[in-house]
């Protein structure tokens, strides 16, 4: 595995499976009365958030604390940090503090890559979402959720997602979740289909390892998982689609549409959902919808990533098990 996690495309199939398997081990820790592991004791992790995202920040923070890391939260949003120079300044401040890892969320695509490659800092960099580029831990937690639901918690160990048919619906153009998922799911052997109005698919998508379709109804019966992306209402003001109502009618997932999916197929959403826009309450609250599981799985995945990038080669869980006995 590389030293940093910047893009889902950085992961090989074996890297990804290893992260998913490690996350299963981490998940078991969450089921115990004492949820803490000593793995990252004495290591410092900074959550450097230039963009608001309480959900992602809390998920990383929970993962860091369960691994006993020292956690510093740095919210740069709203402070004087608006000019680009400050990313470098902030990085050098963190470097001087001797941090071991930086979890960065940034509104500008490529900011984590710059942080990792510009010589501003030595720490391991983990991308927690950058602009419309990548959000690799989101893709990992999605793959983890799919593997559990479609293959099984134990049966899935060591397995990838070969042959699974995954449909991603919505604003692909502005979505780092879509980009990360296409990369990772392809690496894991899944067949990905993107469904969106043509205005919300980037020029150049024909080079992505996936199919593109404009008709949701024809794709649903051939889907093992359907991932609904959030669509911002403001997009209609920029003429990406005419009205909210028309968007929902053509690309929203309601009960009738869900019924066209195979029995075993699941509905996913990276959250936060815009109910009534891309997904109806009926679907969001159904058994087939994995939104809540995805949140829980996010912590396990982030523990696995932090452990594998920072924890070295010692086993994460097995030796602590004996410790606890």
């Amino acid at each position: 595995m590389k030293r940093h996690l910047i893009s889902a495309a950085d992961l090989t199939r074996d890297d990804a499976v290893r992260i998913l398997d490690t996350a299963e081990e981490m998940a078991r820790v969450a089921d115990r009365p004492i949820k803490k592991l000593p793995t990252l004791r004495g290591r410092t992790v900074v959550n450097l958030f230039f963009e608001d995202s309480t959900r992602t920040r809390i998920s990383f923070e929970a993962a860091e604390k369960r691994l006993s890391a020292d956690v510093i939260n740095f919210s740069a949003k709203g402070s004087s940090v608006s000019k680009g120079e400050s990313l470098k300044d902030t990085a050098q401040t963190l470097e001087a503090m001797g941090v071991d890892a930086v979890v960065i969320r940034h509104g500008a695509s490529g900011a984590p890559y710059r942080l990792a490659t510009s010589g501003w800092i030595d720490a391991t960099v983990i991308n927690a979402g950058d602009g419309t580029h990548q959000h690799p831990t989101q893709a990992l937690l999605d793959a983890f959720t799919m593997r559990r639901r479609l293959i099984g918690r134990d049966a899935g160990l060591g397995q990838d997602l070969s042959g699974k048919r995954i449909t991603i619906v919505g604003d692909v153009l502005h979505s780092r979740v879509a980009r990360s998922n296409v990369d990772l799911l392809h690496t894991l052997g899944a067949e990905v289909t993107l469904v969106a109005p043509p205005t919300l698919v980037p020029v150049g998508v024909d080079h992505w390892p996936c199919e593109v379709a404009y008709d949701l109804d024809s794709v649903l019966p051939k889907s093992d998982a359907v991932m609904m992306l959030r669509v911002q209402r403001e997009r209609m003001n920029a003429a990406f689609f005419p009205t909210e109502r028309e968007y929902s009618r053509r690309y929203g997932l309601d009960g009738d549409r869900m019924a066209k999916m195979p029995e075993h197929a699941i509905v996913m959403h990276p959250g936060p959902m815009v109910r009534g826009m891309e997904i109806t309450a009926e679907v969001a609250d159904s058994e087939r919808c994995t939104v809540v599981e995805q949140v829980a799985n996010g912590v396990s995945i982030r523990m696995a990533v932090l452990y594998l990038l920072l924890g070295g080669n010692e086993p994460a869980v097995t030796h602590t098990r004996t410790e606890e006995k």
Binding site: D130, T132, H133, Q134, R176, V203
Partner: peptide, 15 residues
Amino acid sequence: NEGVVSAELGLGGWP
């Protein structure tokens, strides 16, 4: 430039 690379990098395209 808007094209294959911008699509991948998530940078605003200049067509």
